[in-house]
Design a protein around this nucleic acid. Structure first.
Length: 638
RNA sequence: GCCACCGUAGCUCAGUUGGUAGAGCAAGCGAUUCGUAAUCGCUAGGUCAGGAGUUCAAGUCUCCUCGGUGGCUCCA
């Protein structure tokens, strides 16, 4: 008989000889624990609480409140949802329904479209299933029997899933609650009554097995938590996130517009947005020069023949814009590398010249599909802080580390958290094994040397080389790729780039493509949400607004305005005939860092009274003192 | 590109079973001259995204186009 050590959620360990289910054992040892535990883990393998384990080891209990427990809970809720959907609608085929980052979904095949109202009906039915407290029952069936079962139940997607399992799989597990049966690896919560807090969120289309050649199914998204309180908090978080959506703030703060009449995915920057952008671009130029980059500028259109030679024409023609004048075809650039390579090729290069680092704030056009456009985050015209570094293979490590360091610095300056991923050779890639090996290990070694934690994303590299991606998180917890470092040995080959080595032989340089913030537009979108529009002083398009108490103070206020403006402070004036409270409110909504109040007292003592946007009043000071204060705030970003 | 939903004043939104458009905020004008998140009054604002159709009659129903939203696929 197997002997276990049973580890309770409070960490205490009790030895137990079990010839019964885990559930029964917990009930005996600690009856209270059973209400919060959803599954158990034995030797790394997850088990249902109804299981009778057949091996020795330490049995760890998974509480619902843990991340693993939450995943099991949500997965179970998705099964309940599938059951409710099948009970509510005729002729619904189920497919798959996993837990995802902050909830779960289930994909259904149903001729009629589910509506928002339907979600309420389904939720009601789910409540009934939960009230009935149906146990989740696991069974293992020989493969053929499982196929027969789902064939009989007219579930073609399940049959397809079983048939596509590897040949050595002879037994599959199925779970049922009430009259509902699903193919599933498990584990699940013991019974539906354990579900305390869930909500169905939205309906969306999704291709069967994620392949656009397949039928599009209907996906219902939902979420669930251990308690109603946590669910409420999650819903509040979503509301908060909506308030800081960059599309909304872009309009409210008058930063930019996207207009039908102009075209989808094309941004018009208004004065304040353009100022924010200018500040970022100034920072970029200054930092690149400090790090030994050369700033270059290339043309917006290049002859189509050049795009054919680079391979872009064959691979990405569909996404490129073209223009033809006097029977000559030009491609509007979707990337900046070609000009940079032409600069490299403009003369004979020696190993002594390397590394060469060409930097350009390069504006590119890509015809993104309509369905993917999204505010500033996915657009058709954007500007990359793009650089191409040409170096010898043994310079690679230093160069990559310097870029990683640059990116880390940039993230710190702009106040972001990020994650790092190393993406390796994909299928259908070009280049030799030796090249891939060299480049991948150079990237990996540089990451190790710089001490950055990273994850390996196998097979997700570019077709021409491996890459390191840096991902920012926005207010909706969506991850956005911004910085990237990519190794490329194809373009130097295609354009026959070379340098003269110490031995007088011609050698091929290695090329790194890299961006720091990525697309400026996308970065600004993330930045707007990150700060909820309340930018730090150094990035605020308007740093301070002068507000008069009455019209009497206008002449003096005008004097202060001119003084601060010529001192380089980004200052606005609000001399409207309104009450002070009204003007403070307007400045507050505009998230201007400082409101400089000028009333009779200030005129008399020739001062201003700054109020911070956090509500703090700094008391009266001279314009010179305020100027010093602002300059100090910005100094560490210079 | 695909699925679903949506498009009414600068913004946020009402608009009954089809009967010729409404509010708040913003704007302009006037009054008020006020001390840290909304002073009061008046005025002006719309080819109801665009086009076609059904109908005596279309913001409302149907179709097409252009946009947007949430996802899916894609993102060199």
């Amino acid at each position: 008989m197997p002997e276990f050590k049973l580890k309770m959620p409070d960490g205490s360990i009790v030895a137990s000889i079990m010839d019964r289910s885990i559930c029964d054992a917990i009930s005996d040892w600690q009856p209270k624990a059973i209400a919060t535990v959803v599954a158990a883990k034995l030797n790394g393998q997850l088990l249902d609480l109804s299981a009778c384990p057949q091996a020795d080891g330490e049995l760890e209990l998974i509480p619902m409140a843990s991340s693993e427990g939450l995943e099991i809970l949500r997965h179970s809720i998705s099964h309940v949802m599938a059951q409710a959907v099948q009970q509510t609608f005729e002729d619904v085929k189920v497919s798959i329904g996993p837990a995802v980052e902050d909830g779960f979904y289930y994909d259904f095949d149903h001729a009629e479209a589910f509506t928002i109202e339907d979600l309420g009906v389904i939720e009601k039915k789910m409540q009934e299933i939960i009230a009935a407290d149906l146990p989740f029952i696991r069974r293992e069936l020989p493969r053929a029997e499982a196929v027969a079962l789902f064939t009989e139940r007219a579930e073609p997607y399940k049959v397809e899933l079983i048939n596509d399992l590897p040949e050595d799989v002879s037994v599959v597990s199925i779970y049922s609650q009430g009259d509902y049966v699903d193919l599933c690896r498990g584990p699940h919560i013991p019974s539906t009554g354990m579900i305390k807090a869930f909500k169905l969120m939205s309906v969306a289309g999704a291709y069967w097995r994620g392949d656009e050649r397949n039928k599009m199914l209907q996906r219902i998204y939902g979420t669930g938590f251990a308690t109603q309180k946590e669910l409420d908090e999650h819903l509040r978080f979503i509301e908060e996130a909506k308030k800081r959506d960059h599309r909304r703030l872009g309009r409210e703060l008058d930063l930019f517009q996207i207009n039908d009449e102009v075209g989808a995915g094309l941004i018009i920057w208004h004065p304040k947005g353009a100022m924010l952008r200018l500040l970022i671009e100034d920072w970029e130029r200054k930092e690149h020069l400090k790090r030994g980059y050369d700033i270059v500028v290339g043309p917006q259109i290049l002859k189509s023949d050049l795009w054919k030679r680079s391979g872009h024409y064959d691979h990405y023609r569909e996404m490129m814009y073209f223009t033809e004048v006097e029977e000559q075809s030009y491609g509007i650039k979707p990337m900046n590398c070609l000009s940079h390579m032409m600069i490299y090729k403009s003369k004979i290069r020696s190993y002594r010249d390397l590394p060469l680092r060409y930097f350009e704030l390069g504006t590119v056009h890509r015809h993104e599909k309509t369905g993917v456009l999204h505010g500033l985050l996915r657009v058709r015209q954007f500007t990359q802080d793009d650089a191409h570094i040409l170096c010898t293979p043994d310079q690679l490590n230093d160069e990559i580390r310097a870029i990683a360091d640059f990116i880390g610095y940039a993230m710190k300056i702009f106040g972001f958290e990020y994650e790092v991923e190393l993406s390796t050779r994909p299928e259908g890639s070009i280049g030799t094994d030796q090249d891939w090996e060299m480049a991948t290990s150079a990237l990996e070694q540089a990451l190790k040397d710089s001490g950055m934690p990273y994850e390996v994303n196998a097979g997700d590299g570019a077709f021409y080389g491996p890459k390191i991606d840096f991902k920012l998180k926005d207010a909706l917890k969506r991850k956005w790729q911004c910085a990237t470092i990519q190794c490329d040995f194809t373009l130097p080959e295609r354009f026959d780039l070379n340098y003269v080595a110490p031995d007088g032989e011609k050698r091929r340089p290695v090329m790194l493509h890299r961006v720091i913030l990525g697309a400026i537009e996308r970065f600004m979108g993330v930045l707007i949400e990150h700060y909820a529009g309340a930018f730090p002083v150094w990035l605020s398009p308007v740093q301070a607004v002068l507000v008069t108490v009455t019209e009497k103070q206008i002449p003096y206020a005008e004097e202060v305005y001119q003084k601060l403006l010529s001192a380089g402070i980004r200052i606005d004036k609000d001399f409207k005939n309104e009450k002070l409270g009204h003007k403070i409110r307007e400045a507050q909504i505009q998230k201007i860092p400082y409101m400089l109040v000028v009333g009779d007292k200030e005129v008399e003592e020739r001062g201003i009274s700054p109020r911070q946007r956090d509500g703090q009043n700094l008391g009266m000071m001279s314009a010179d003192q305020f100027e010093t204060l602002i300059k100090e705030k910005c100094a560490r970003f210079e």
